[in-house]
């Protein structure tokens, strides 16, 4: 059997695969954070709660309404996005003119409330959510078994991230977004309804978090607590990648997933802290992050 530095190749590839799956979630979540930050200048602390909501709603849709995975994959992001739009219109829009700190405090408070409401009604126990039948099982690649659902998560994440990047960088709507990010007042003075774009951007970023939640549901125990671990790592990813770069946040997310996976193989004890070690090093060398622009 093939070895790599004393590690059997299938085990190594398996861990890399798992790392890429985690990286896919990091990428989707940090992409949403970056898009929201670019437009609203708010560090959205509700992001983890929205991710948890995505998974919980998928589980609820299945448990109470009998709606399966594919329904949830389409509708849950829309529901989470709509929920975020309501939050933006009712609360966030009033604080844009204040110091960014208020946005952080408000979204942090909202995250606590959302988490609290779900804990109140559903407790903290994990709920199982099964992989849809179409995606169970594994593909034999000859050198390793590739679980179909993992491949699916990675593929969806990469496609969604690339589509988002394309939309922002290459389309007319994207040029509105970039313009509104750079100079909102002037962009509005050209006749573009910037407040609506801000609202939709927040909804879109939230929908990405909801999508990540649905994708994650079959891979983990669905519970109101699932946001906390994920969101801390994702914020570290965002710090490492640097705020504001779309492609940067995606690459950093996937890359750090891989780094975590590799660390599990070679020094498992450090696998849960390696992201933070990388964060410290990056902060020392490039305080604005790998893809961030120094002010």
């Amino acid at each position: 059997m093939a070895d790599f530095l004393g590690v059997p190749l299938p085990a190594l590839l398996g861990q890399l695969m798992l790392g890429l799956v985690n990286g896919s979630f990091y990428a989707l979540l940090s992409l949403g954070l970056a898009v929201i930050f670019g437009m609203l200048h708010i560090i959205n602390f509700t992001h983890g709660a929205l991710y948890m909501m995505g998974a919980m709603l998928a589980w609820m849709a299945s448990a109470y309404l009998g709606l399966g995975y594919w329904w949830s994959l389409v509708f849950v992001p829309i529901v989470v996005g709509a929920f975020a739009v309501v939050i933006e219109r009712s609360l966030l829009q009033w604080i844009y003119k204040l110091d960014h700190l208020y946005g952080l405090l408000l979204t942090f408070g909202l995250a606590l409330i959302i988490g609290g409401v779900f804990r109140h009604f559903f407790g903290v126990g994990g709920q199982p959510y099964s992989i849809p039948p179409e995606l169970t099982g594994a593909i034999n690649l000859g050198f390793m078994y590739l679980p179909k659902y993992r491949a699916w998560v990675i593929a969806v994440s990469v496609v969604v991230c690339l589509a988002t990047w394309y939309m922002i960088e290459k389309t007319r709507l994207g040029s509105y977004l970039r313009a509104a990010t750079e100079n909102p007042a002037l962009t509005q003075a050209f006749g573009i309804n910037v407040p609506i774009m801000v609202m939709l951007t927040f909804g879109f970023g939230a929908a990405l978090a909801g999508l990540a939640g649905v994708l994650a549901a079959p891979t983990t125990q669905v519970s109101p607590l699932m946001s906390s671990d994920m969101i801390i790592t994702v914020f570290a990813v965002v710090v490492i990648g640097g705020m504001g770069s779309i492609l940067g946040s995606v690459l950093t997310g996937l890359g750090l997933g891989l780094v975590e996976g590799l660390t599990k193989v070679f020094y498992a004890e450090a696998s849960s802290t390696v992201v933070f070690v990388v964060m410290v090093i990056v902060l020392l060398v490039r305080p604005a992050g790998l893809f961030g622009k120094e002010k």
Binding site: T181, N183, L186, Q188, A189, G191
Partner: peptide, 24 residues
């Protein structure tokens, strides 16, 4: 009126600082 509504009535504004977008 908010500024986008004013612009939509047929007003074009060329600001003193020119306002060219670096991201475009």
């Amino acid at each position: 009126m908010p500024s986008h509504r004013i612009a939509q009535l047929g007003v074009g504004y060329c600001p003193e600082e020119r306002g060219i977008y670096s991201g475009l």
